[in-house]
Simulated assay, not measured.
Amino acid sequence: MHDKLLQHIYSGHDLSQEETEAVKKYFEPVSFSKNIIIEEAGKIPQYLYYIVSGYLRLFYTDENGHEVTTHINCPPGFFTSYSDYINSTVSENNLEAITDAQLLSISQENLNHLIGQSQAMKDFSISIFQQSITYNEKRSRELSVLNAEQRYLKLMNDYPGIIQNVPIQYIASFLGMKPESLSRIRRKIIN
């Protein structure tokens, strides 16, 4: 299970054999079934996850009792409620497996230990968190400047696997629209 993570790291950073073994030691394999809440709102996120396979989402429940999907991720990649994980603060988000998921998890303590003993892993971690910040800024901009159809077409183009694996109500919420609106857009595109 560690092969995908190691390939991801090797794509930009060189690891010694000792560093490779440390990655295998600290990133622990875990599996979750579809629709399982992996980490609950109201708690401090315990792990950073590397998605080997499967789809995950972050969501919160608004004042009207509606679930609002703030982030969807697919393999490969890292996933957690980042700011809460980094700062050890209570998260308002739930982390859910949308599909069956194979993950590698690492606690903040183990991540800190790993990056403390490996400059390559420290550099890799910084690049991952920079990518996360960049993604969130880009997403915020897209939500404010693109119309609903443009947001859906961009999602289809950038992440086609999401369309086949994630329920429409989660996609609609993630794109900032109602499921009925997304259904109309999808019908229009098909026709």
Rank of each mutant, 00 (worst) to 15 (best):
F124L: 10
M121A: 00
A120P: 04
L111A: 05
Q108K: 13
S125I: 02
I106P: 05
I128W: 01
I128H: 02
Y135K: 06
Q117I: 08
Q130K: 11
N147D: 13
L104P: 01
L143Y: 01
E96F: 03
T134Y: 10
I106L: 00
I106M: 02
R141A: 08
Q150N: 05
S144G: 13
Q119V: 14
N136K: 10
A148P: 00
I106T: 00
E149D: 07
Q130G: 02
E149W: 02
K138L: 13
Q131M: 14
Q130E: 14
Q117A: 15
S125T: 14
S127F: 00
I133K: 01
I128L: 14
L114N: 02
E109N: 12
E149R: 11
Q102F: 00
S144I: 14
Q150D: 13
N147A: 08
Q150R: 12
V145C: 15
E137C: 14
I133G: 05
A148G: 00
L103M: 03
L114H: 04
T134S: 10
E137G: 09
A97P: 04
Q117Y: 08
I126Q: 08
M121V: 07
L111W: 03
E149N: 06
R139G: 01
L103K: 00
L104M: 09
E96V: 00
R141P: 04
I128Y: 02
E137D: 15
M121P: 02
D100H: 06
L103I: 03
Q131Y: 12
I126H: 09
Q150V: 12
L103Y: 02
H113E: 12
I133L: 14
I126E: 09
L103H: 02
L104I: 01
A120F: 07
I133S: 09
Y135N: 08
L103G: 04
N147H: 11
Q119C: 12
A148H: 01
L146F: 09
I115R: 00
I106A: 03
K122R: 11
L146H: 09
F124R: 06
L111M: 11
T99C: 11
E149P: 07
Q130L: 14
H113T: 11
V145R: 00
Q131D: 14
S140R: 15
S125N: 14
H113I: 09
N136F: 11
H113R: 09
Q108Y: 03
Y135C: 06
